[in-house]
Amino acid sequence: MTALGNRRWWLTGLVVVWIAGLVGLTVWSVGHDRATVPEQRDIDLAVTDLERAAGVVYATASGADRAVVLGELQLTRDCRITPVRSGVAAARAVTVYVGDSKAAEAVEAIAAELPVEWAPEQSRTRAGTRVSLHADAGNFVGIDLSGPAVATTLTLRLTTGCRPLDGAAPVGGDATASPAPALLNTVVSALDANVGEPVVRTVACPSGGVAGSWTVPDLSMPDDLPGRLRQAGGEIVHADDAVRAYRKAGDSIVVLPQGEQLSVTVSTSCRGA
């Protein structure tokens, strides 16, 4: 074989090795590199990211002067990734009840306790009439809060944005079907009612264990609601005609009157999980 032929074979072999290496690098990159756009993580992965972040947010939102309620996982199917491609978005909320004139203080405290790598930002408008918070939990999961500075109910909302759906939509939601806390029976019994089958919403706590909210809906409104709730004990966080929120031994009690009925939610804390 001539020198020219040897050179051609050598060049051909070099090109083949280069192509094989490029393909291998591409395959490895797809499986290992961090996603650069939301579309690179489908809704199953996004829900996993969302639930992990929800545990952190729930743990952070709970405090000695705050009552919390964990919301359910919500899936929205009518979002658009592109004008011609539909997808699914996931969201979950943590509702925080605070005392009068405590909204700004609570938002500041929550922002301070969120992971530094989430780059939490809390602010108050120049006129001081509204408070807000934003954080990036990674993998395109955002946390947002915005409300009046005089609000006594704040909502931290976690969202994934629109993601691709590969197969069936995830069921997701609760970390485990944990037994209801004893405090739930104490509160419901004080209202002369039975617990029955509560609605359960839980998350995995960042330090381990499980915490969440147990809700008993559609209870009859008793006479002297404040007096009956005093029998259950707890310190008042906020109380008016729309909501009665308490803290007891690290847990939250939230009672929502609805006409002639009411719902009772007891939420356990990650700090004690």
Rank of each mutant, 00 (worst) to 15 (best):
P222C: 11
V56G: 00
V171Q: 10
C162V: 12
P164W: 09
G142K: 12
A169R: 07
G272L: 15
Q231F: 03
I110H: 02
N6W: 10
T152R: 02
S123Q: 09
V210L: 04
N139E: 12
E117M: 12
M221S: 11
R163G: 02
T129Q: 12
V23Q: 03
A151V: 05
S213A: 08
I236Y: 06
W10M: 13
S207N: 10
V195L: 03
A273S: 14
L262D: 03
A104T: 11
E39W: 10
M1G: 14
T76F: 08
V200H: 01
G173P: 02
V107P: 08
L75Q: 10
D251Q: 15
D251P: 00
S220R: 05
E260Q: 13
W9A: 14
S189N: 06
G234E: 07
G147H: 02
E108P: 00
L165V: 08
G147D: 07
V266E: 07
P179T: 05
T82G: 11
L145M: 07
N139D: 13
L256D: 03
R163V: 04
Y97N: 09
H32E: 13
A137S: 05
V264A: 06
C162F: 12
I19T: 13
G173L: 06
V17G: 12
A53T: 04
V264G: 06
S123L: 05
S146N: 13
L70F: 01
V264E: 03
S132A: 15
G63S: 10
V203A: 07
L183I: 01
A135D: 07
G24S: 14
G99K: 01
R7S: 13
V131K: 00
V187P: 00
P115L: 10
P222F: 09
A64Q: 14
M221L: 15
C270T: 05
W9S: 11
Q261T: 15
D33R: 15
C205W: 06
T202H: 02
D251K: 10
R163C: 06
G13A: 14
A273Y: 02
D241K: 12
A168D: 12
A151H: 05
L4V: 11
E121N: 11
S267G: 03
Y58S: 05
D78E: 12
D136R: 07
L191T: 06
R7L: 15
T159C: 05
D33C: 02
A89K: 01
L225S: 09
P181V: 03
L158Q: 03
V266I: 10
V47C: 09
A61M: 06
L114H: 11
A211G: 06
H134S: 14
S86T: 14
Q258I: 01
T82E: 13
